[in-house]
Design a protein around this nucleic acid. Structure first.
Lengths: 359, 359
DNA sequence: TGATTGTGCTTAATCGTTTTTTCAGAAGGC
DNA sequence: GCCTTCTGAAAAAACGATTAAGCACAATCA
């Protein structure tokens, strides 16, 4: 009987009570009378495992199962310089936009063995600076930033969803705003609308500028005038219909000489409809309203909203896939990925009053 | 000139180019001609730092700043057996409930130097089992589970938001459903409603049972009958107003002999209002509807919703504070923390038709 | 002079893995 | 009988930080 055999028997008898601390390779090694290295090799099916006979492997695997061995994530990360975590930077979790994108992100990440840390900056410039650093300190391997204007690209793979600023090394996933503008304006145009009021997004929302430019361009092509007196500026940072309420109120106090509103988003559209109603105007009979986003409630508002659907879940999905691609150094780098929007026609748009009468 | 002085000068001259890898204590130590231990002591202001003269400390701090030294989170976690992370388990990020609670959670956690990992189980039993394990493997120090029925308490500090099941070691943060039921039923009762239809939540939503019991109890006290033929069962797992639409449709096909609906939540209330309208019934003129939650859109729906407000943000805030308390072993354990709801009266409730005519 | 007390650090162990290198003993080849 | 080749592992060196213990030297004290 060799010394080793003796030791093994002893170990078998002692049975290593589950201890207070979680079982690790060393404990497992003592129990099996093997070195931690061997166990690691077996459990990871590493190349060097070839020289280890099947019955040893079985013993190892059985013991790991028996003691419910779970490798220490931190030890592993430290050694392998990987964290399998990414950072997600959002304006606000509860704004209804981010959560949908994150839903898409999450599904992809979990499948690939990644988790993510979230930080919401509430559109405060100092936090937009600080949080990426904090997440870097947590060793994230990459970033996804949602609807956020970064000043600087973080020094690691980064994908921006709806971040229009072009930063070196950052892939932007954005809606094809040109196409979106065409969808909403042509829809109104074909219904017969010619005097259209617009909402211009706030500067801190990264989508705003692009969307506005596209609307201008398409309006011009259609021969529609975008009149300053029919242009509303979205203000404040609320994520309730309040977004569109006061400015539409204000517009109506000035003039009623328009037959349609292109709202900044669905929330603003709902606020606008409220304001119109309070001024005795019916939607869509007197004024048509087009939204943007197609969030859940769009279909259930009354009237239900005609809107431009943004496939947020899919954008999150793509963001995650592209980011993982960058992290793994797989595919080539793309600076811009365009997502195709879709027009969803519901009740809030109809031909303008004049045209209706003609019929 | 001592040997050390010489070395230091040499180090000064060499200037250690920022290398490809992030700077660590060893590199910093070579640059400063100090041991990693000393630097760690100084930077952490550890007890042993007392014996280190101010000018050495200054040198260390200056160098750390110069090279933008950031301690490896994983090394630290490994050594200190702390992860400063918690796991958050939610049914779905985008359901509008979780995100609000998480908003509250996040603010507290970040302030305290914690981050969180999120996993959404989409109400699938296998994922509800699997995700906590995955998060444990990531060494989270505790859990917050939102609107989720756990089968087993995880072996670490756990706080449940709206999880009515009583598990040993788990603190439940729940709405005072009794109070909520009183608020909504008394409101309807005082308006004159006597025949009231109810929606019963789906079994997988952890709030359902409690809410139902409380409604029954209060109804009884008020002498209101809860008729089986006026009881709707919420089905499906959608988080759109679709929740309340088909069942209200179905109810109306059977009977119109009721003057009010207590909806399961605001979404279901909106669906119900849609259905009522399609059947030619006006809200609140013919039927009053009370919601639950007071989500953003409640105020902007038309009619705006009378509802029971759940302070979700605050619940998240409390969940995080209580969890951190448990983790730090501070305060005593409480099995249940009740949150007080609030009645928000808006347009969707009014006296019933009969009573109106009398007036 | 020898012992004590402070300074100002360093050493070494530790956290739990992974991975490369090494090595003992058996088997086979000449 | 000596050299090589397998086989089946162990040993050791990372990864980067923390922290208790130790140590050299100088100053003070008896």
């Amino acid at each position: 009987m060799t010394r080793r055999k003796l030791n093994r028997d002893k170990a078998m008898k002692e049975k290593t009570p589950p201890a207070n601390r979680p079982v690790n390779l060393k404990i497992l090694g003592e129990y099996l009378d093997l070195s931690p290295a061997t166990i690691s090799l077996v459990l990871n099916n590493a190349p060097g495992v070839k020289s280890i006979p099947q019955d040893t492997r079985d013993r190892v695997i059985a013991a790991a199962k028996k003691f419910d061995y779970r490798p220490s994530f931190y030890a592993r990360s430290l050694r392998g310089r990987r964290s399998f975590s990414i950072g997600v930077l959002v304006p606000e979790l509860s704004d209804g936009y981010s959560a949908h994108v994150m839903d898409g992100i999450e599904q992809v990440l979990i499948e690939e063995g990644y988790f993510y840390l979230t930080a919401s900056h509430r559109r405060k410039a100092d936090l937009i600076e600080e949080y990426p650093r904090m997440l870097q300190d947590r060793s994230v391997e990459g970033f996804i930033v949602i609807d956020t204007l970064l000043e600087q690209a973080p020094p690691m793979p980064t994908v921006a969803v709806a971040g229009h600023r072009k930063l070196p090394g950052v892939t932007n996933i954005t809606l094809d705003h040109r196409r979106a503008a065409e969808l909403s304006l042509k829809h109104l145009y074909q219904l017969g609308h010619r005097r259209i009021a617009f909402m211009r997004g706030r500067a801190s929302s990264s989508d705003s500028a692009d969307r506005w430019k596209s609307l201008m361009a398409v309006a011009k092509e259609l021969g529609l005038e975008v009149l300053p007196e029919l242009t509303m500026q979205v203000e404040g940072i609320v994520s309730t219909p309040e977004l569109g309420f006061p400015i539409t109120h204000e517009l109506l106090r000035r003039t009623r000489d328009f037959t349609a509103i292109v709202a900044f988003n669905d929330l603003a559209a709902i606020g606008a409809i409220r304001a119109l109603r309070e001024h005795g105007l019916a939607v869509p009979e007197d004024v048509s309203v087009v939204g943007f986003d197609d969030f859940e409630h769009a279909a259930y508002h009354s009237p239900s909203l005609t809107t431009i659907r943004q496939p947020l879940h899919k954008m999150g999905d793509m963001a995650a896939r592209i980011l993982l691609g960058h992290i793994r150094g797989q595919d080539g780098f793309e600076n811009e990925v365009a997502i195709v929007p879709e027009l969803v026609i519901r009740e809030s748009t109809a031909p303008p009053p004049a045209r209706r009468k003609k019929r």
